[in-house]
Amino acid sequence: MTLEIIQLVVSGAFLISGVFFVLAGAVGVLRLPDFYTRMHAAGMTDTLGAEFIIFGLMVQAGFTQTSLKLFLIAFLLFLTSPTASHAVADAAHHAGLKPLLGKFRAPNPAEVKANKVEKH
């Protein structure tokens, strides 16, 4: 009984943190300024986000064949997702997409409003 509760709590914690990282990645993709920086946020979802969710499911499955299969999926993600990210970034670099370099800060909402008022 207590083992089941521990299992539930641990898998729940993994799942929630995984979902948190996926959400943070989504927010990052929307907020970050250019292609390359957005890829960092997207990478966050497919490393820790996906891995934590799979770990949570593994804890829930216990020592069964299902959790072995989930481990295989996690391993394949570990192998393929950085490769895919690299391929996309490489393609963008080859196509001549210039990265945005230097310091960058999110624009202040008040500033943006002021700009808009000036334009009108």
């Binding site: 394949l76 192998l79 393929t80 490769t83 690299h86 391929a87």
Partner: peptide, 14 residues
């Protein structure tokens, strides 16, 4: 290089 090495690992598994 990266694509080649990873693809080599993946092809038998697929």
């Amino acid at each position: 290089v990266i694509l080649r090495v990873v693809a080599k690992m993946l092809i038998p598994l697929i």
